[in-house]
Design a protein around this nucleic acid. Structure first.
Lengths: 221, 221
DNA sequence: AAACATCATTGACCTTTGTCAAGCCCTGAT
DNA sequence: ATCAGGGCTTGACAAAGGTCAATGATGTTT
């Protein structure tokens, strides 16, 4: 599958006419990342923004003492590092693969042209608002809910409401995405397992039947 | 001071030509809020976005159990609720005055016209990115720093690096902005007072001389 | 297959922060 | 001036989650 093909399948570019898409694709680069590989570091200068085609990336910030806070786990189809499109030249966070992944890198200049199309521009801006909502929700979750709640919110946000999940991530990455550490996460899974709420084998997570129904929090969204 | 005057002094509108400003001002309404008054509730439908002219608002979300998470304390010159400009009709959070305040309400339709001006549009989008950075920083702070660190980060973000602060807010609102409760906040202030790091009398907060120098965290920004 | 590295789990412990309850203090209204 | 109510402080306590250290599991390289 070539780069153009990849781009066409991205939500953000769905409504884009072929000419504009070609323009984008022309200077786009595909890059493959193996697990733990870093795409860019917080503070790096860069001219590219990215679209995740397959796999999974973790975006995080690092504190003075080395502690990392995961901002988001990215799933295929999402774009990120869009901050370089306007003004800022430095990435405000680190992006690293938490699974075998491929991304398409698009230069900020190719993107500017596309932004001229009004229709499409509005949907781009809307998607920015979507991201802002995501971030405010995360703030809310971190300050008002406990680790267990946040874990299920993570499942919901990242994979939707299912009973069986195929999760291609390591547990420590999920722990971080949930805002805790592996030990605490492990204990929580233990507790949920012995209470019969879930079984987690390899990459397959099964929730008890009717789990989501009985758990009526304000996970609505 | 009339509405037009107020708008002209807002950063966001600084570069806007007079005609566009007039267009904005035409349908804008000024509203005065007394302390604790709510401008809009989470979930309300609305067609207006707002600019804060004077005073201070607190934007927060409420959890199922009634716990509130403050997303941001707004200072004069900031705009907010811009989400109604694109798509979404419901406010995703509550905005309430935490001090005597005045806001200007601008209808989404008056704003659309202004958005057509390319130069200006770019600066609007840039300001959205600024907000996103603010939110990611908040996530990072909540998960990697303790209450004391977050308090000083709050001072820095909201009022800048000074030695004497005039803070027109109630302590419980600051506590919430810092992601804690009044009791914990009070104890922390007590501790800092007896260690000689600060004195807080009425609305005046004084930091020990050279406080910011000795406190070399990564508050850099 | 052996060796190594990384990840996951578990236990004992400790720190931070939240909860509940009571008292104080300031302010605004009568 | 007095009273009432909200905000602030303080204390005793509880709970959630982090730290440190050891062990087991997994999977990857040679």
């Amino acid at each position: 599958m070539n780069t153009l093909e990849l781009l066409r399948n991205i939500d953000l570019f769905r409504d884009l006419d072929p000419a504009a898409l070609a323009e984008l694709g022309k200077n786009a680069l595909t890059r493959r990342l193996s697990i733990r590989e870093v795409l860019f570091h917080e503070g790096d200068e860069g001219m590219f923004f990215y679209v995740l085609c397959s796999g999974s990336l973790r975006v995080f910030k690092t504190a003075a003492d080395g502690k990392e806070s995961t901002i988001k786990i990215l799933s295929p189809g999402e774009f990120f590092a869009e901050i370089v499109l306007f003004g800022k030249k430095r990435y405000p966070a680190t992006a690293a693969a938490v699974a075998e992944s491929t991304v398409v890198a698009i230069h900020r200049d190719s993107f500017q042209a596309v932004l001229e199309r009004k229709e499409w521009r509005d949907s781009f801006i809307s998607s920015l608002f979507g991201k802002m909502s995501y971030l405010t929700d995360t703030i809310h979750h971190l300050s008002s809910y406990d680790v267990e709640d946040r874990f299920f919110m993570f499942l919901l946000k990242t994979y939707g409401k299912k009973e069986v999940y195929e999760i291609p991530l390591q547990k420590k990455d999920i722990a971080s995405a949930v805002g805790t550490i592996p030990e605490t996460f492990s204990r929580m899974i233990q507790r949920l397992t012995s209470s019969g709420d879930l079984r987690w084998d390899r990459s397959t997570l099964r929730l008890r039947n009717g789990f989501w129904i009985s758990r009526r929090d304000d996970f609505g969204e």
